[in-house]
Simulated scan of single mutants.
Amino acid sequence: MRQAVMTEPGKILFREVDVPEVGEGQIKIKIKNIGVCGSDIHVYHGQHPYTSYPVVQGHEISAEVIEVGKGVEGIEPGDRVTIQPQVVCGKCFPCQNGMYHVCEELKVMGFQTTGMASDYFVVDADKATILPESLSYEEGAMVEPLAVAVHAVRRVPSVEGLNVLVIGGGPIGNLVAQTAKAFGAANIVVSELSETRLKMAEQCGLDTINSKREDLVEGIGRHFGERKADVIFECVGSSFTVAQSIEVARKGSTVVIVGVVPDLTKVNMGFVQDHELTVLGSAMYQAVDFDRAVDLINAGKVDLKSLITNRVRFEDYAEAYSIIDNEKDRVMKVLIEME
């Protein structure tokens, strides 16, 4: 079978390897689509602190089950699935207390262990989420980023009836905003610099602030009035926007850091204390987030198809990275097509 290997930053080679055998409790899947995300780009540029080379990427996928191992129940050949890509120890404090997604020994397929950029892949059956027939394989490959958004919104006890500000209109920010809307938020606004991403948010039924043209504080007042934002989701992952999230927060509000921040950030902790802010981190997801993501798609409460801006053949894998590098703000989600 074909397998794409990143041998060093910026270099992807294809090799023929044996199709893996199914073990007890495992399933063999035929990969249909692979999504490319920001963390993949960091690996491509040699900027991911926890990934070494060579590495097989691919953690946002959709697939068809073609074989099940002994002891597997509830999954049959022909089922359509996506995969939760975490590999955890099951023994540490987080794993033993319902927080396996932040396992002390966490590995993620495509980063610290082999990803799914190949024709076939064998994985533990308990990592599979079955996709209903109503979902396309392309939508199935986007369940993983939607699960990131679902987990982020679920970090807040409830957003129902609240004013929600999302800073950053990229794929994750857009999905966080759509999820907050699906979960009952009263008003949702996306702050973004890119005209393309602003139009995409509006196409998905979201209000926007063009923070290149309008001061963010003024935009918040225009949309939310004196109450301002009850919850702010930071979905950029920069020192500037993290600090900005704190600075524009209303007294008693909640800030959720969703973006992956690569460097140390100076935060006005006196402001956090004086305004009695709740500041939360959000990392990855759990199986329940995958289930909720599938439910949202199946109910038509999120628009994924509009976010797919580019498709690339598996043989042209490296082109996906070039598209994202060269077109930046004009690109939302790039999918790799296996067939």
Rank of each mutant, 00 (worst) to 15 (best):
A186Y: 14
M109T: 08
V153Y: 01
K266Y: 14
T7E: 13
H275N: 14
I61E: 01
G25E: 04
D215N: 13
I188T: 12
V242L: 01
E226W: 12
P20C: 02
S322H: 11
M99W: 12
D40G: 04
M200L: 15
M332C: 14
V231M: 05
N97L: 07
S245D: 05
H48Q: 03
P85S: 10
L307K: 04
Y44F: 15
K305H: 10
T179M: 06
E276L: 08
R155T: 12
N33F: 14
H223S: 05
V143C: 03
G46L: 08
D126A: 00
A182I: 10
P157L: 02
T129K: 10
L165K: 03
N33P: 00
V236K: 00
I83Y: 00
P85K: 11
D124M: 01
D40N: 02
R313W: 00
V55P: 12
I66Y: 00
S322R: 12
R154K: 15
Y100P: 00
M200N: 11
D124Y: 06
G168H: 09
M200T: 14
L335P: 08
T114E: 14
I323N: 12
C95E: 12
T278C: 03
E192A: 03
T265M: 05
N187H: 13
V148C: 15
A128Y: 12
K251I: 13
Q86R: 01
T82P: 05
A147Y: 08
I324D: 03
D325A: 07
Q203H: 10
I83R: 03
Y44S: 04
S239Y: 06
E339C: 07
G168Q: 01
V159Q: 08
A117L: 11
N33H: 15
N97S: 15
V190Y: 05
I188P: 07
G281H: 06
V176G: 01
I209T: 02
P77A: 06
D291I: 13
N33K: 15
V68G: 09
I31V: 15
K212T: 09
Q26L: 02
S194R: 05
Q96R: 14
Q86S: 13
R313C: 00
G90M: 06
L193C: 05
A229T: 11
T309Q: 10
I130C: 09
I83Q: 08
E202Q: 15
T254L: 09
S136T: 15
G168T: 02
D263A: 09
D291Q: 14
Q84C: 09
D303Q: 13
Y317N: 06
T208Y: 08
K266W: 11
S158F: 05
C37P: 05
E315P: 00
F314Y: 08
S322I: 08
V302Y: 11
I41M: 13
Q178G: 02
L175M: 13
V272K: 06
E104G: 07
E139Q: 15
G71N: 07
E138F: 06
V36I: 15
K251H: 12
K11C: 02
N174A: 13
T208G: 07
K91F: 14
I209R: 00
V65L: 10
K32A: 07
